[in-house]
């Protein structure tokens, strides 16, 4: 589809139009600091499209931190029924890495047994992507996630104070109806391409081709690097909770105050947390911090990569940006490679 160009006022108009139709969430800057969060848009002027990374990825709307799966009513013969809560929603201003994260979760949660709650929410979400400039933590260039080709309805690329708009779906087309836009010039199209090339030239990178990671990881099982990195890990699970491609969950029954009914809910869980692999008898199959750290890395760059054909890491850098002791996947992978003499 041909690229269009819209001005800043048109972005505000677009936001107003979408807000009139229903719920819109977008990045907002936290007062007084350089942190951003996805929140409901109350005023289009509060939306900040020029941001590095939000604290939590927009995954939180498709896979909420806490979500009802089941409603039950206690009785001699209890009643249980599925709860699938989904509403029309526009995620406005998602970066390519976060869109990649949602696409990755589509694969995992729709594999074999399809997760009904995920599918229902995803079906009602429209996405307006926006391109970004990597900060000192991003490594999307290494992960091949600096741009995405699917998973959005509209994609905005900032250019000289305007935005170049790619309309990717019929839903995106409908969004653009009535928004003043002009066709992008050949120079503007070339500038968009050039922007991506610049974005890919990140200093921060892993020292091998991303597609060779599963192969390299097959030799990392006994690397001493795991123990070195795990030594400073607090096992707090922040990396899990901020990750756009993590989807492990716990399931808990919450009773209503009446004690007659309640809901079964799933909550984000994290494989870095100590009890994650512990069974009822007390046996813990991943008791050591080193084993949990190793598992997390293997899951991202080997197990799920092998299973679904792409890394379960989008290079957003949230895990290191928010890690209390600065455990960095890029540095860890490079140390693993260097130690095994596999640096490319």
């Amino acid at each position: 589809m041909a690229l269009q160009v819209i001005g800043c006022e048109a972005v505000t108009q677009l936001l107003e139009k979408l807000m009139a139709e229903g719920r819109v969430v977008a990045p907002h800057q936290r007062e007084g600091n350089k942190q951003w969060v996805f929140e409901d848009v109350k005023d289009p002027c509060d939306v900040c499209l020029d941001y590095t990374s939000t604290i939590l990825p927009p995954k939180k709307y498709a896979f909420p931190p806490k979500e009802k799966l089941l409603h039950y009513e206690l009785a001699d013969r209890p009643k249980m029924e599925a709860v699938i809560e989904a509403e029309p929603l526009v995620i406005f201003g998602a970066h390519p890495c976060d869109i990649y994260g949602l696409n990755a979760l589509d694969k995992a949660l729709c594999d074999q047994k399809v997760d009904p709650n995920w599918v229902a929410r995803r079906a009602q979400i429209r996405i307006v992507g926006v391109d970004c400039e990597p900060d000192e933590y991003c490594f999307c260039g290494s992960m091949g996630t600096a741009s995405v080709s699917t998973g959005y309805d509209l994609f905005l690329t900032p250019l000289n104070g305007d935005y170049v708009v790619e309309v990717a779906t019929p839903a995106g087309e409908a969004m653009m109806e009535g928004i003043p836009a002009r066709e992008a010039s050949a120079e503007e199209i070339a500038a968009v391409k050039k922007r991506l090339e610049t974005k890919l030239r990140q200093e921060r990178k892993i020292n091998c081709d991303v597609n060779s990671l599963p192969l390299h990881f097959s030799g990392f099982e006994k690397s001493p690097v795991w123990a070195e990195v795990a030594e400073k890990c607090y096992s707090c699970g922040t990396c899990n909770l901020t990750c756009p491609t993590c989807f492990c969950f716990d399931v808990l029954d919450e009773m209503d105050l009446s004690l007659h009914s309640g809901n079964r809910e799933r909550e984000w869980d994290g494989c870095m947390l100590e009890e994650f692999a512990q069974v009822g008898s007390g046996e813990n199959f991943r008791e050591e911090r080193e084993d949990r750290l190793k598992h997390r890395f293997f899951r991202k760059y080997s197990y799920l990569f092998t299973k679904y054909g792409e890394p379960y890491c989008c290079g957003c850098g949230r895990c290191v940006r928010q890690c209390l002791v600065h455990i960095d996947p890029v540095d860890t992978i490079n140390r693993l490679l260097a130690h095994s003499g596999k640096e490319a």
Binding site: L69, L70, R77, P78, M80, E81, A82, I84, I99, L102, N103, D106, K107, L109, C110, K113, V114, D115, P116, N117, W118, V119, A120, R122, A123, Q124, I125, R126, I127, T150, G151, Y152, D153, A168, T169, A171, G172, R264
Partner: peptide, 19 residues
């Protein structure tokens, strides 16, 4: 919609059957 996942889901995946 932007989603890549167009698969049919079993609504009852997490719903137990009474025994």
């Amino acid at each position: 919609m932007a989603q890549a996942c167009q698969c049919e889901a079993d609504r009852e995946l997490y719903v137990p059957k009474l025994a």
